[in-house]
Write a protein that binds this DNA or RNA. Structure first.
Lengths: 139, 139
DNA sequence: TTTCTTGCAAAGGCTTTGCACAGTA
DNA sequence: TACTGTGCAAAGCCTTTGCAAGAAA
């Protein structure tokens, strides 16, 4: 079962309809690499309207199957989300993106909550660097 | 000496001119609370052109006296930056923003670097929650 | 005087909305 | 059939750019 299939089930379970454009976008997103801009999706799905792409991205975000990534320059990209909570590590040279999760980070959040009296509801953590391959190539 | 004075010295030291609009914007930013949108600055500085506000914000960002904050809805705000490296904790209810820094977070980054082989160059960490006062008010 | 800045207005990029038609359940 | 979803085009929002005039050093 492909990731697109899983997502279609999620849509159905939540009462959303399985339409042609939605299926097409799911397939396209699977081919676009680890992260993509809204416009990449528009370009890769010629039969689907721009508005539908944005509406679908938003819907998938709400469903948690797509996550938003803020790039180093502040622009927005999207990514098919793994199930677990995670963060993004992005190579500023080649653009590779990988996920990571960190128990230590959870500890940081707990500590922040303790010190400030806040209840933490959400956070955003993006890390930018240079991957091993790019370091080797650049050296 | 006010914070605006300090910033003016920074500008001068770096070879930037101390102009009327820049002084005006510095004063205005000091009155806008802990964070503000570009448009808030435009509105609060009637004599200064929109373009100048954006140019000045960018300049101040490059100088490190203003930092950019990504709000929970993805929009951008600005904030007068303290000297040290820090992160933002934002109350989603009343909008209060406070800074925090964390040695533990540095440890998290080091661990990520070790596990992935990346050299970390930058990161973005924003935390959203509910402050103690809003919890009390809501309960 | 020379060079950096500014304001205005217009262009730009990206995202959302309105509306009539089409497709799903 | 009833209602959700779609495409198209236009509007919106925020930010940047071009350029001639103005101010700082």
């Amino acid at each position: 079962m492909t990731s697109a299939d899983v997502i279609e089930q999620t849509l159905a379970r939540r009462g959303y309809r399985l339409t042609g454009p939605r299926r097409a976008l799911l397939v396209v997103m699977g081919t676009l690499g680890d992260h993509f801009a809204a416009d990449d999706v528009v370009g890769a799905a010629p039969g689907v309207g721009r508005a539908t792409v944005f509406r679908t991205l938003k819907l998938l975000q709400d469903l948690g199957v797509v996550c938003q990534v803020v790039l180093e320059d502040g622009s927005t990209a999207y990514r098919l989300a793994p199930d677990e909570h995670h963060h993004h590590l992005l190579c500023v040279e080649c653009g590779e993106m990988r996920d990571f999760s960190s128990d230590d980070l959870e500890a940081v959040l707990a500590e922040v909550a303790r010190r400030t009296g806040y209840t933490i509801e959400a956070h955003r953590f993006e890390v930018y660097g240079r991957c091993a391959a790019c370091q080797a190539a650049g050296a």
